[in-house]
Design a protein around this nucleic acid. Structure first.
Lengths: 243, 243
DNA sequence: AGACTTTTAAATGTCAGACAAATAAAAATT
DNA sequence: AATTTTTATTTGTCTGACATTTAAAAGTCT
């Protein structure tokens, strides 16, 4: 674990990279304690604030956690699926909002990924996940629901669908795609009519999953994607030349 | 942009979150300059090192970039697809290696996602992407290639397949899944025979993409997945009771 | 001896002030 | 007018100090 002490002016980044490499390569294992900040500053021949900046960089990526007090310190963190989820959602959301990704592009990606889960979900979904879907459908049918709340419930519904595949890696990968879409979806104002339509699609999906009918799930997702894009286009249209 | 000055002992994390929220909400826009470190430390009523730790957290997530000198400072960074890729790969790789994800689980996720791209890729792949695939296939057929190099070429081949879908969001989402598999794939020792088999699959996929035959791409991916899992099981078997 | 309390030491969290280095704008010079 | 020099601003880094937390060690009482 070495750094180039002369080269550029970004010691804390170099130190963070050195420690990151040690973690990725397995040189430092989960729950292992790093040397104290004072020891690290000796090792790398830098000051303690510089070491701390490096450690904060790693903490921002959930690579380490710190604990105060005697026998405290920085420990290699076991990156949980939960941590990875939230990081991915932040990243995906920003990526979409900062790069002017079109609604169509994001929507296509989202439904393509979701459809990839559909066959597995039809096979493996638990009664519990089915119940979650039904509950979200019920929530969506409540009158007086704000558009935001409707979208949030929509996300929860689709999360349950994805989780039904019973593959944590898939769930993790798709969390970003599905949740990052929410800000874009929130731009759509749902009429009572369009909510009804969407709920019908959701019911059809839930029914098909209950019957373990993968094909119907798939085709309904295709239909739902078309309908969603239609709604978005209407919104865009109306925005261009308002009534 | 406020923090709770009393509550817990993690001011830099709170400040980072406050700024992060301001970026995500659009209160701070791309390329906008943040107040100087001194001004921030005044605003938040904390010391400059604390502000710096917060900024380093954000820099670790590529949310800001810093520039020295007069009219320098910290600027909201446009999160590029490239930045997002590399973050996702780091995260995915660690997630898989730290959580004892089985080869089967990761493999299933990877091919499910890849198959989601297949129809779009069959429709939209460019001649350029096809050429990349052919080049990688050629490289894979070279004798004397190390297992690592073979795997790297395999990843490049599948990257081209995914990029063929022409959807940057999909490419981004899948980069993690495909690349994170590489360390797991590297555990497989490829015989000359198994390399030949894999190359045949790759050729079949490239041919089908050239012919815009989505169904063959899909079925070949299914076959390739089965074969990959078979290889992995053989390795696991041999490891349990070595010859 | 054993259970409880107090002390101590080690570690992170925070602060203050200073200097170095880079950089762009302003001022001075040719 | 063009070029060079100066200056001011800002990040990068260092030193040293104190606060806070926490576990272990030491001490105290029953």
């Amino acid at each position: 674990m070495k750094i180039d002490p002369q080269k550029p002016a970004d010691l804390s980044a170099q130190i963070a990279q050195a420690i990151r490499d040690a973690i990725v390569s397995g040189e430092l294992i989960v729950d292992e304690r790093l040397p104290s900040e004072t020891e690290l500053s000796d090792q790398f021949q830098v000051s303690r604030p510089t070491v701390r900046e490096a450690l904060k960089r790693l903490a921002a990526q959930s690579l380490i956690r710190t604990q105060r007090g005697a026998s405290g310190g920085a420990f290699v963190n076991r990156l949980s699926f939960q941590d990875a989820y939230s990081q991915q959602i932040t990243t995906s959301t920003l990526l979409l909002s900062m790069n002017a990704v079109t609604f169509d592009t994001a929507c296509e990606a989202r439904y393509a990924l979701e459809r990839a889960c559909a066959p597995m979900s039809a096979e493996r979904r638990t009664a519990d996940q089915l119940a979650t879907m039904r509950a979200e459908i019920f929530r969506q049918s409540q009158p007086g629901l704000t558009d935001e709340a409707f979208c949030a419930s929509d996300v929860a519904f689709h999360r349950a669908l994805v989780d039904g595949a019973g593959n944590p890696v898939l769930s993790y990968q798709l969390a970003g795609a599905v949740e990052a879409m929410q800000p874009l979806m929130n731009m759509i104002t749902f009429t009572a009519r369009s909510r009804e339509e969407i709920i019908l699609f959701h019911e059809k999906i839930a029914d098909a999953l209950e019957a373990r009918d993968a094909e119907t799930v798939d085709s309904t997702l295709v239909d739902l994607e078309s309908y969603t894009r239609l709604l978005a286009h209407d919104v865009a249209e109306r925005r261009r030349k308002p009534a």
